[in-house]
Design a protein around this nucleic acid. Structure first.
Length: 567
RNA sequence: UGGGGCGUAGCCAAGUGGUAAGGCAACGGGUUUUGAUCCCGUCAUGCGCAGGUUCGAUCCCUGCCGCCCCAGCCA
């Protein structure tokens, strides 16, 4: 017996979500022997953090109940899908830490089976070929309150339907000439049951089946049956598919499928100040409003990864959300908290000055320098320490000096003494300005007795500043990111407004004159570090030899900035 | 106005006939060679509204109100 307490889990005291409860019940009642879930992305773009919720749910639930989770590319629309996205999606899942093992599938693997099931439906009198145009079908569908009317082709004989359907496959007709429809009920209150289209003619090259087909099943006809083929037990999807569930069930009931999957719908993730829709994200990319799907401001998984947000932060953020059916918008602050929380324990602490202000230590010998010991992580001794060069000329942060400071400003100002981290106490003795009256340099004196940062006489100082030796500094470009939109819910636009109007013009600020301590010269790409008192950064792939570029993953919380703003 | 869902604090939410968990945010305080981290504390007499049943209702019943999804040969 151990008296070590069990590790804490997020929502430890929270109840089980409705999906896990349903699975537990199915297992207990013997309705399913082994849980099988699936993540079914359409390869028509890159995944975003909203998808991470679905991914984590499907894979975690399978793992928790000893089942498995498949990765299935829902590639039923060759007009929109590309191999690039298939590869990208796999890389994203791997990065998040999920493994589909040997269970990689494509809906296109089932095209032949799906086709024969369509034939089965036709033979049973449950489907028919319709010659109506898309416009005519729409006109006869009825409205939300008025029933639809039957197609004049609804009562074709099975033989005629079979003939037409095989000729559709054979390529005899043009795109849109005919479709296969389920024969259900044109008066149903559920519009999805008003003889939904099942197959359409699409003369297009498919990334996998290439030119074998010109007839493609749509989502409704493909999804449930693919689930059945794979013996998926719990098919988890988002709320907008709720009204499709009756059709999902109808098809499974009318087809000789090998299994009976059940669909469950949960609410998708929304986050303030961004958009979580592939369509809108694509608009940002195509419109040149961002640098690409992997722009560090994008909520895509590739964007977050390039930004430097650890997968663990995304997973933790999602774990704190719960799975349900209520729609809401999570404040981006929750993601930011998870990001800092993931970075804080491990990111090495280093010094980098974003906006340099030169200071000269007048009583420090000219031309000399020394190495000072600095902890790599003050809270973690195992992280060790490093040597940082100190000299007569240094850079400190412009924000750390005020010539005429307000009462609660503790940092450097004329006549005031502060500590330079791991170095010495310094006192500002003179302010040098240019012709415009801007402060361009500070003259200071230091107290040699305070080496390392402590005064032997016990005197205290109210601030500790980060700094970099001018003679040893590494020049770097820093990219500071802010939220992509000014509005909390950019996708919800007012009448006559364009959602792009709420793009934040200041979402990217590039700093070209940053000065970093020399050990940052060989920082590894993508590995997060903390610039003390500033934030977490990582090297961007745009870096070149001798010309490092850092992304700011996220700033540190800044209660001084908050207080200063309040006044 | 047809069908399907959803309403608990600023946000995400647990709970369920017995008197409202937790996280984020906010605010106050302590520690601090990062104004960071960490630690402590405050934050719903009330669970969309109105009735009803009950000793007792966020939970059961009735009626309202609000929000979301569906009229692609997209997924």
């Amino acid at each position: 017996m151990s008296d070590i307490p069990a590790p804490e889990k997020a929502n430890e005291t929270a109840g089980e979500d409705f999906i896990r409860a349903a699975i537990r019940a199915d297992l207990a009642a013997g309705r399913v022997a082994r849980v099988v879930t699936r993540f079914p992305p359409e390869p028509n773009g890159y995944l975003h953090i909203g998808h991470a919720k679905a991914i984590a749910l499907n894979f975690s639930v399978a793992a928790e109940f000893g089942g498995r989770c498949h990765l299935r590319f829902d590639d039923t629309n060759p007009a929109k899908e590309e191999q690039e996205y298939i590869d990208g999606i796999k890389a994203d899942l791997t990065w998040l830490g999920f493994d589909w093992g040997t269970h990689l599938y494509h809906t296109s693997d089932y095209f032949e089976q799906l086709y024969s099931w369509a034939v089965h439906l036709i033979e049973a009198g449950d489907a028919y070929v319709d010659d109506l145009s898309a416009e005519e079908i729409r006109a006869r569908r009825g409205t939300l309150t008025a029933p639809g009317t039957d197609s004049p082709f609804r009562d074709r004989t099975a033989a005629e339907n079979l003939d037409l359907f095989s000729r559709m496959r054979a390529g005899e007709f043009e795109n849109g000439a005919r479709v296969l429809r389920a024969k259900i009920d044109m008066t149903s209150g559920n519009i999805n049951l008003r003889d939904p289209v099942l197959y359409r003619i699409l003369h297009a090259h498919h990334p996998r089946t290439e030119d074998k087909w010109c007839l493609y099943p749509n989502y409704d006809f493909a999804h449930g049956q693919s689930d059945a083929i794979e013996a998926v037990t719990h098919s988890l999807c988002s709320l907008e598919f709720e009204a499709h569930r009756p059709l999902y069930d109808w098809l499974l009931e009318h087809l000789p499928v090998p299994a009976n999957p059940r669909q469950y719908e949960f609410s998708r993730l929304n986050i303030t100040y961004t958009v979580l829709s592939k369509r809108l994200l694509r608009e940002l990319v195509d419109g040149g409003h961002v640098a690409g799907w992997d722009d560090p401001r994008m909520p895509t998984l590739v964007g977050l990864r390039r930004r430097g947000v650890p997968a663990a932060a995304i997973l933790e953020f999602i774990a704190r959300l719960s799975v349900g059916k209520t729609e809401g918008v999570v404040e981006v602050e929750a993601l930011e908290h998870a990001t800092r929380d993931a970075l804080n324990p491990t990111a090495p602490r280093l010094m980098g000055v974003l906006r340099p202000l030169k200071i000269v230590i007048e009583n420090y010998p000219e031309g000399e320098s020394e190495l000072l010991d600095a902890a790599n992580h003050p809270q973690d001794e195992a992280a060790g320490s490093r040597q940082v060069p100190f000299g007569r000329e240094l850079y400190v942060e412009q924000d750390d000096f005020m010539e005429d400071p307000p009462r609660k400003f503790f940092r450097l100002s004329p006549g005031r003494e502060v500590r330079l981290r791991y170095a010495y106490f310094v006192t500002c003795t003179e302010v040098i300005k240019n012709e415009q009256g801007e402060v361009i340099e500070l003259r200071c004196t230091y107290d040699p007795a305070t080496k390392g940062g402590n005064a032997p006489d016990g005197r205290k100082v109210k601030a500790t500043l980060h700094w970099v030796s001018a003679a040893h500094a590494v020049d770097a470009e820093l990219r500071l990111y802010d939220r992509l939109f000014d509005q909390p819910n950019p996708a919800k636009v007012e009448e006559g407004q364009n959602w792009l109007d709420s793009l934040n013009a200041a979402s990217l600020e590039t700093l070209t004159g940053a000065k970093l301590e020399p050990s940052l010269a060989d920082a590894a790409p993508g590995v997060p570090v903390q610039f003390e008192r500033q934030g977490y950064f990582c090297v961007d792939p745009d870096s070149a030899a001798g010309k490092p570029v850092f992304n700011r993953i996220i700033s540190l919380r800044d209660s001084w900035a908050k207080a200063a703003k309040k006044g």
